[in-house]
Design a protein around this nucleic acid. Structure first.
Lengths: 327, 327
DNA sequence: AGAGTCCGTGAGAGCGCTCTCACAGATGAA
DNA sequence: TTCATCTGTGAGAGCGCTCTCACGGACTCT
């Protein structure tokens, strides 16, 4: 290839990498030769010497089932992919939900096959992000890490603010028995949204009542079950803040299945504003979190890290109340 | 690392790759040393010599918007990913919907960063799969390629059979004006489902009537518009076969918006059996294609190709009619 | 005992790039 | 003219592995 162009391999390499200090003549020769030969540089060889691969991993710590059932993850995947593609970075899609999977992933990343990691839905005090950073693999989390931020980069929505907003709105409606269906408490989003609920109650001078609180996983079935439990325990409930739209949709079904109406008997506010929330019957009142910006911001944060930026603290994006018909 | 274990690099390499002709002693030494040092082999260096990378591309020839709005693609992504993960192969997720994107992708694949390609939603007579095969990159298509199968591997559902099944069912219901909303005719699925519709009509001795046929893209909005056109042109229509569930859902809305009822006035049959079809109001009668098997089969076909199998002809999986409430 | 076989191991050549360094020739300053 | 500077280029080392080949030692077979 270099021979065909009549230049050295060094010069050919310079042209192919777009360096500027090459004569126009040499440049043309190389480009013509590359075109004739259908020559494409070998990425593995390049990686070996540069130490970079041009790809990052998108790692979801959930089952495939959950990942694909949740519009939140899909939205993050979509927007992160877009930002990465604009920067000519490939996205390697990975799901890892067992300690064994995590170990394998660490080896993979440490082996140098990705330049960085986008980590979603981290549970509890998982060591994964710290391990990755120690191995020199820049990592950005979606959701504030539970064990203090430890110098990790993350992006998150204002979950506490959102939980508070939703609850205050329900109280403002004149409801007196405001319950909540909390998400898993081993996740930051679950904890924070519940904290927001408590904060709103306290601000309103209402005592926190554990029997108005139940916890379930972020699924429709979880919402149905949780609401059923809640109504059985405290029939006088007249409002509920569900910590995700999927939970809220399940809750609405449970309320109706119990012969009561939404929002007349029980008002419901969800969280996320997934696409389904709008077309739901009735359309869901919810807290909108900017999923597109979250994904894009996450990717951008990683890109900055890969370009050498220090592990910045996290970014927290604002949420807003979207009033539709369930509250 | 080899020094630490007191063996040669060759032996260390043998252990790390899991070769069997190594003494137990040497094996233990190497494993202990690797563990102590947190040593992980560099994948780029390995790729350079083996010529393989352990990853394949999942390429969708659609806009991001379309890709993420369509449960079919998501289902394929999910099941393909699962099979690949089981074989320790990473999936590189890519969207490419312009000639420019295609060119870039060819360079990427030719550069040797993936061992194979899963190609979805190919339009018209695109050269992409042939180019890839010529460059020595095994490629498997979802959907029969339009220009004869050219020695390409593909997997597909029985679209002709499904279109025929749907249409025969509508005719069997006693409907006399069976229309169809066809998908894009530059795609194999669009063409084949329409061909099935024609075949059923002919088998029943009914003449094919172009004014009962309209074409639109595989989206809900497309279905709404198409059905509106159809009813305006031929108000006597009493049944419609929509070439996808998204189209069918849009069609049902259009029919109701026109003040007519489903299925009493107009019966509707869709195609795909996406998750939404079941929870739709009313639940959709549709042709189920086995999305999970399609994605898994596609991945398996590619794995076989990568293991050296010849570009087998395609596999066509059967579909079935699922009767619910719209027909 | 000698020849043949097998098994585990090490030496060493590359894989295809990038990147540093040195150098020739052109240019500019003194 | 002489020396310093700059610009484009080539030579060559080396990235961290795998894989072939050759070899010593233990074993079996006649």
């Amino acid at each position: 290839m270099a021979a065909r162009a009549g230049v050295s391999r060094a010069t050919a390499s310079r042209v192919l990498r777009g360096e500027s200090n090459v004569s126009d003549h040499a440049k043309e020769q190389v480009e013509a030769a590359a075109h004739d030969l259908g020559y494409v540089p070998d990425l593995a060889a390049r990686s070996l010497v540069t130490g970079r691969t041009g790809s990052v991993a998108f790692l979801v710590d959930e089952t495939e089932e959950r990942m694909f059932a949740d519009p939140f993850f899909l939205g993050m995947l979509r927007s992160a992919h877009q930002v990465l593609a604009d920067n000519s970075i490939q996205l390697v899609f990975t799901v890892a939900n067992s300690p064994e999977d995590h170990r394998r992933f660490v080896s993979y990343a440490a082996g140098g096959h990705v330049d960085g990691v986008l980590l979603l839905s981290l549970h509890s005090r998982d060591e994964l992000p710290l391990q990755l950073e120690q191995l020199g693999v820049p990592t950005v989390l979606s959701g504030r890490p539970l064990h203090g931020s430890d110098g990790l980069s993350f992006i998150d929505a204002d979950n506490v603010g959102g939980g508070r907003l939703a609850t205050e709105y329900l109280i403002g409606l004149g409801r007196h028995h405001v319950a909540t269906i909390a998400g898993p408490q081993d996740m930051c989003a679950g904890q924070d949204r519940l904290a927001g609920y408590r904060a709103a109650l306290e601000a309103a001078g209402t005592a926190y009542d554990p029997s108005l609180v139940t916890e379930d996983e972020f699924t429709q079935a979880g919402g149905f079950d949780a609401m059923t439990r809640l109504m059985r325990a405290r029939p006088e409930i007249d409002a509920v803040f569900a910590a995700s739209d999927l939970l809220a949709i399940g809750a609405v079904r449970a309320i109706r299945a119990a012969g009561r109406s939404v929002p007349a008997d029980v008002a419901v506010v969800g969280f996320d504003d997934i696409a389904d929330a709008r077309v739901q019957e009735p359309p869901l009142t919810t807290i909108r979190q900017p999923i597109g910006e979250l994904g894009a911001g996450m990717a951008q944060l990683l890109l900055d890290r890969m370009a050498g930026a220090a592990p910045a603290a996290g970014r927290v994006l604002p949420v807003e109340l979207v009033v539709r018909h369930t509250a």
